[in-house]
Design a protein around this nucleic acid. Structure first.
Lengths: 116, 116
DNA sequence: TATATTTACTACGACAGACGTAGTACGACA
DNA sequence: TGTCGTACTACGTCTGTCGTAGTAAATATA
């Protein structure tokens, strides 16, 4: 078990994506690569999950999209830029994370090597 | 936002329940109370979520159920007891938790008060 | 030059877990 | 008598994830 299951991350995919958009706009493929490297191959977001996250977040006003041809290839890409609403949402999720962590860890035994 | 959203906990409801069963069998109502108090009212598992978790976990062999009349009221209750498989699963989820935490926190800014 | 792989997506449908709503039933308490 | 707490079951909906598939252009490999 080296890969993280999606049910665990569920609820934080959007947060992870928004984090990567904090300083610069980006697009699907790049985000997916960044998640992979930043997590040291421990989490690999699925394409469909990623793109549906984009559309959902755009609907929610957390990101804005625009089309742009890449400087190198000249191929058209859909870039996403985080909005102020998105930053607010990101900040809330960060707060929530620490709360969640606190709670979950009351139910987690460190080094449980149970008598099974 | 004082309550934790269910999507965040998704994937750990089973773990929380199993933790409470580690030392002693228990039943739905009691488990739900214990989750509430142990989390200091920060997480309140829904009845339907809880009972469907029980049936799922029994199907998966993580718990075993038996009927028993309570000593005080004489009312019949369905108790659940953790199995060896359940303990193994619990141990795995604990390990997974620490991995998940590590990964998620690379995407989380502590005290993010973003310029929004 | 031909082919495979990488890049950059969209569409569609299935599935699992969470949850809203509702209903049952029994005991205690006011 | 009626409400509240206890202890569930049934059923259907919703959301996010993901499998599968397909498109298309650019780049790497043979």
């Amino acid at each position: 078990m080296t890969e993280i299951s999606s049910d665990v991350i569920r609820g934080y995919n959007d947060t992870m994506i928004l984090f990567l958009l904090l300083n610069t706009p980006s697009y699907g493929y790049e985000i997916s690569k960044q998640i992979k490297t930043l997590s040291e191959n421990k989490y690999n977001i699925k394409e469909t999950t990623l793109y549906s996250a984009f559309t959902r977040m755009e609907k929610n006003g957390y990101v804005e999209s625009y089309s742009q041809e890449s400087a190198d290839t000249g191929k058209k890409r859909t870039y996403y830029r985080i909005t102020d609403e998105g930053k607010k949402y990101y900040a809330e999720k960060c707060e929530e994370w620490f709360l969640t962590k606190e709670v979950v860890e009351r139910f987690i035994e460190e080094n449980y090597n149970g008598n099974y």
